[in-house]
Computed example of a mutant assay.
Amino acid sequence: MSDLLTEACSGGRHLESLGLSPGSSGNISVRVGDRVHISATGQPLGSLSADQLSVMELTADGLAHVDGPRPSKEHGLHGALYHRDPDAVCVVHLHSTHAVAASCLPPWNEHSALPPLTPYLLMRVGNLPLIPYHPPGDADQAQLLRELDIQCHGALLQNHGPVVAGRTVSEAVDRAIEIELASQTRMLVGQAPGARLLTDSETEHLTSAYGQPWKMAL
Rank of each mutant, 00 (worst) to 15 (best):
L122G: 00
E16H: 15
E171S: 00
V91H: 01
L81F: 07
L128G: 00
G26A: 10
L181F: 07
P136K: 07
P135F: 11
S17C: 09
V36H: 01
P69D: 06
M187I: 14
E178M: 15
C104L: 15
L53N: 02
P107Q: 09
C104M: 15
L122A: 12
V164E: 01
P162D: 06
H65E: 11
L18W: 02
V32E: 14
D149E: 15
G79D: 01
G137N: 09
V66A: 11
L81I: 09
E110D: 15
G137Q: 10
P129C: 09
I177P: 00
G19M: 10
H95R: 13
A139V: 13
T118M: 13
I38D: 00
L197R: 10
P71E: 06
E16A: 15
P44N: 12
E110L: 08
P116H: 05
S29R: 04
D138E: 12
L94N: 00
H14V: 12
M187F: 02
A64T: 14
D85E: 07
I131P: 01
G68R: 06
T6A: 15
G154L: 02
Y82H: 12
V92R: 03
S2H: 14
S103P: 05
L144N: 00
H37N: 08
D138T: 08
Q158R: 13
R186L: 11
H153A: 04
N127H: 05
A60F: 08
L5H: 09
A142Q: 03
T41N: 12
D67P: 04
H65I: 10
K215Q: 14
G76F: 05
C9H: 05
V66K: 11
V91G: 01
D85N: 11
S39L: 10
V89N: 00
N109G: 12
L45S: 03
L81V: 05
L114Q: 05
Y210Q: 00
I150Q: 09
G190P: 04
Y210T: 03
H98C: 12
V66F: 10
H153L: 10
L122T: 00
R13S: 15
A101S: 13
E16C: 09
R70K: 15
G19W: 06
A60C: 08
Q43K: 13
Q212D: 03
V91L: 04
L15V: 09
L5A: 10
